[in-house]
């Protein structure tokens, strides 16, 4: 639920509340990661490093459901809908455009919630490895999760052999999104 203010407030105030709504979303990704079978058997250092490099990408997948590519609008969990044009005032136009494209592609695959959750687990453990100490353990966890994702998807769609590879092709898209946009600025009011 994002308490983004109605249009009447200044874009700085909208920006403050938009920045605030990232904090709970990040904490939810940390809790999600801890629920991934095998994640907590990684060293704490490697858990933290994976989360630092993968959380933005997991958030991008989670936020997809808020984006309506046809209407070019975003509906936050509190029910408030914003057109792409009005959100441009926040200065995140390029990120929003990229998000609409990405959510259109991912949305068109029609994944079930459990498939989406398993895909997010794969996204997290496929994140950048720089800083990881036990790369072998992370690669093993990634392999296990990819195998689980493949069998879940192919068991439900035995005659569709294209969906799984198409889904894996979203991983480089997410990495590009991350490289281009995770340096966007947030602003927090200091009272």
């Amino acid at each position: 639920a994002c308490p983004v203010a109605p249009a009447s407030r200044s874009s700085q105030e909208v920006w403050d509340s938009f920045s605030q709504c990232f904090t709970p979303a990040v904490r939810e990704v940390v809790e999600f990661a801890k629920s991934i079978p095998g994640f907590q058997s990684l060293s704490q250092h490697d858990q933290v490093m994976l989360l630092k490099s993968g959380t933005f990408q997991v958030l991008m997948v989670r936020f997809c459901s808020l984006f309506d590519a046809k209407e070019r609008a975003v509906t936050f969990l509190n029910g408030q809908t914003y057109s792409l044009a009005s959100l441009r005032a926040l200065g995140m136009g390029s990120l929003l455009d990229a998000m609409f494209d990405f959510s259109e592609k991912l949305g068109s695959m029609g994944l079930e919630p459990d498939e989406m959750a398993l895909f997010m687990a794969v996204v997290l453990v496929s994140a950048d490895r720089s800083g990881i100490v036990d790369v072998g353990a992370v690669e093993q966890l990634q392999e296990n999760l990819i195998k689980a994702l493949r069998s879940l998807i192919t068991s439900r769609r035995p005659d569709d052999s294209t969906l799984f590879p198409k889904l894996l092709l979203r991983l480089p898209d997410l990495r590009t999104l991350n490289n281009h946009h995770s340096d966007k600025l947030l602003a927090f009011r200091i009272d």
Binding site: T23, V26, K52, S182, D183, L186, R189
Partner: peptide, 25 residues
């Protein structure tokens, strides 16, 4: 005037993760 602490999305995410793991130590 109110002052603002500005940080990147990536730094904000890192900060919350570090905080979360420190709290659960």
């Amino acid at each position: 005037p109110k002052t603002h602490r500005v940080m990147t999305l990536a730094d904000h995410i890192s900060h919350i993760i570090t905080q979360d793991f420190a709290r659960n130590q």
